[in-house]
Structure formats: structure tokens, C-alpha cells
Amino acid sequence: MAKLVKHRSEFKSRLKRHKSLIPFVLPAVVFALVFSYLPMVGILIAFKDNPNFGRYDVFEAFTKAGWTMENFEKLFSDPEILRYVKNTLIISLMKIIILFPLPVVLAIMVSEIRNRHFSKWVQGLVFLPHFFSWVVIVGIFNNIFGLYGPINNLSVALGGEPIYYMGEPAWFRWLVVILSGWKEIGYSSIVYIAAITSIDPALYEAAKIDGAGKFKQIWCVTIPSIMPTIIVMLIIRIGYLMDAGFEQVYAMINSLTRETGEIIGTYVYRLGLGTGSRDYGLSTAVGLVNGVISLILILGANRLSKKRMGSGIW
């Protein structure tokens, strides 16, 4: 009891001392409340009979609609939605399996460069694509993979038939992986380059004295030294499994590639806010289930990484 009183009075004195700081944090709190927390209340729409928000204002439409679980029943039985869940997982897993190791390889290669200017140039060039919007990158690769682009020019020159890659369902996921790799491999390698820089050079000298060649040095010194970083990055990456990349896929997809390319994010947009159908209830329900699974994955990832490394995402 005495402890509690002491704790309370201590809190009061701290509050008194820092009262003048409250206005500093207030704007951020207000913005977060209005634009992040208020929409969380809106999740209740998922439990409503498809409310006709188009015609009434939000509160009127909300109170008029009845409560229902129909949206969730539909969501777990509709083969169309299940296909988009499958697409999301396939694209996400392809990105992880194919793309995750490449920044590590690139970082090792970059850190082996001896000429400082060459190193600066290589880094400057490989980080660059990260800073362009998906619109720019999809626009560029529409041409690269287009009927008159270099890829088709090459295959035609070799006697093949031109292919409209951007409209081929069988190619879509591969293109997503290729474009994503082109944009992000360089930038993702920064973390590993930084980790390699902090390895003690004496370790390499020792390995050399033991007669280790270049590959042996990389295998026995570099990789074990950056393994903790690799593991944490992998854990975090898996935490974002449910996010297959809305901005990328939305910019790439067209009516021809919907079957293999539509992911949960683009479906939620098309269903809720796209032209034509406006099913707020179902769209919110799909978004909610996706969000909750993501939340669990990210919290798990953060916990795991804190346990292994002592530092998490936050």
C-alpha cells in the first residue's frame, strides 16, 4: 500500500515536471487517433449486412444495417477469395525463397571490392532502383518485356515467337519476382554490407595463415559473422508474409492476369473501392482477417528476433 502511494506520488511529480511536454506529443497523438484508431472502430463494418454507404452518410448507414456473420462465412467458403489467398502466399513465398539470399551474395561481392571508387559506383547504381515508384518501374518493364522491347527482340533474333509477357497468366508471378528483385536486391544488401564492414580484419588474416582460400574465408569467416543479421532479417521478412506487395501488383495486374496475379490487397481494393461493385462489408472482413494474421506473424517475428538477437523491429 505504501509502495503504491509512493509510486503514485512519484508519478504525480513526474507529471508535474513534464506537463509542459504534453503539447509536443499531442499533434502526433491526434493524427494517430483520427487517421489510424478511428478507422479501427470502422472494422465493425465487417460484421454488418452490406451497408449502403454510398447513399447515406456513414453513421446513418452504419446504424441502419443489421448485424451479421455472413461476410466471414462467405470469406472462408468462396473459392474466388481462396484463390487470391493462394496467390498471395505463392507470390510471397516465391519472393522469399528466390530473393532473400541474393542481397547476402551481393553484399559479400561488394565488400570484396578493393577499389574504393568502384565500390562507391557499384553501390550507387544498385541502390538506385529502390528509390523509384512502382509506377515508374512497371512502366519501364512494360517496355522491356513489351512486344518491341529488348527481351522479345532477343528471342525473335534467335528465331522465337514474340510473347506479350505482361498479359500471360503463367508469366505473371515470375515477373512480380523479377521486378521486385530488380528494385530491392541492391537496397536490401545495405544491412549486410554494414554487418560485413564491422567484421574484425584479424579474422581474415588468421584464416589466411591457416591456408584458407577466398571461398573458404567467405564460408568460414564472413557468413558465420553475419549469420545473426541474416536470421533476424529472415524472421522479419517472414513476418510480412501476408503482404505480397500491393503497390507493385496493383500497378502490374490487368484483366488477363487476374487469375494468377490478384492478391488479397488488390482484391480488397477492387471489392471495396474499385469501380463498379462496392461491397464494403466483405472487403472490410477480408482486410480484417488478413490484418489479424499479419499482426500475429509480425508480433511473433518481433518476439523471436528479440529472443535471438536482443533487438527486434521496434
Binding site: 484508431y37 472494422i43 463494418i45 480488397v268 473501392l273 472487403s283 472490410t284 482486410g287 490484418g291 499479419s294
Partner: peptide, 15 residues
């Protein structure tokens, strides 16, 4: 919480 969870597109739009 703001960083890792959101109300979703439709609730954001409605707000």
C-alpha cells in the same frame, strides 16, 4: 500499434 495494424482500406476511406 499504428505501425503494425490498420483498420483497412474501406474504414480508412470512410473516415
Amino acid at each position: 500499434i499504428v505501425m503494425i495494424f490498420s483498420g483497412g482500406m474501406v474504414p480508412n476511406y470512410l473516415v
